[in-house]
Design a binder for these strands. Structure first.
Lengths: 124, 124
DNA sequence: CCGCTTATTAACCAGATGGTAAAATAATGA
DNA sequence: TCATTATTTTACCATCTGGTTAATAAGCGG
């Protein structure tokens, strides 16, 4: 896959199970079995998810007796945060524009209730 | 795939080509051919990438003659930003700890020079 | 209508992903 | 040493992904 770090991080985050695991780890270290408990899937599945998170540098693992406790290692998220920050003005701008548009009320637009997705609909 | 919105967004961002397309769109609208130009891949490939971005709500597309101009629609990134913010203290904490460790200098560690780019500051 | 330009759809392929069950490994404790 | 607990590895499967080429569609401009 050779993917760059940012891609690897985003890919790791693109799964609700893995994000839930990270959320759990915010509350402190946990062993694999403990992490698996809330999910309706087998241990090997969780083990794979943990490997994905580990390769993305989002968790680190230790060893204590038979357990392999995991802990959060969030720096890649710093990278994500920095990446996304570049786009901040775009979603903020968009909201501003929407506000302007709604306030200006050019001509006598029939005030259609907001109801998103008015246009486009490229067939289908 | 039924994936939730956040998963769809992260998945869409987990590809350097798609991130590059978003970066290009920061500089303004562009048609498909124009977006495709910088990449060593065929138009259908780009078309697919655009579909992924569109389904993630990261771009919107219009129509102008034969062209289908794309423009950035970054609100899903707002969601990402909000999600990632919850973890901020974790990567900041880690850096703090590192700092502590470096300052304490227990025993007589050989002072390796800090080598600029110490810890990055998340900007802003 | 014809032909050009722009873009999408269709069909296909290799490789990644997310899951399973069953077997293997690792550390502890009797 | 043996059983137990905790976790990973292996082998397998279906589906998704990212790319290709070839065919199709949609708007122009003559």
């Amino acid at each position: 896959m050779v993917a760059d770090r940012l891609s690897t991080t985003f890919a790791a985050l693109a799964d609700p199970t893995r994000r839930a695991i990270l959320a759990r780890l915010m509350r402190g270290e946990a062993a694999v079995g403990e992490l698996a408990a809330p999910f309706a899937m087998t241990l090997p599945a969780i083990s794979k998810h943990l490997k994905v998170l580990e390769r993305a540098g989002l968790i680190a693992r230790g060893r204590a007796a038979q357990r392999r406790p995991c802990r959060l290692a969030a720096e890649p998220l710093g990278e994500v945060s920095r990446w996304v920050a570049d786009y901040r003005r775009f979603w903020e701008l968009r909201l501003d524009r929407l506000e302007d548009y709604l306030q200006e009320a050019p001509k006598a637009r029939t005030r259609r209730p907001k109801k998103g997705k008015a246009h486009d609909r490229t067939r289908r």
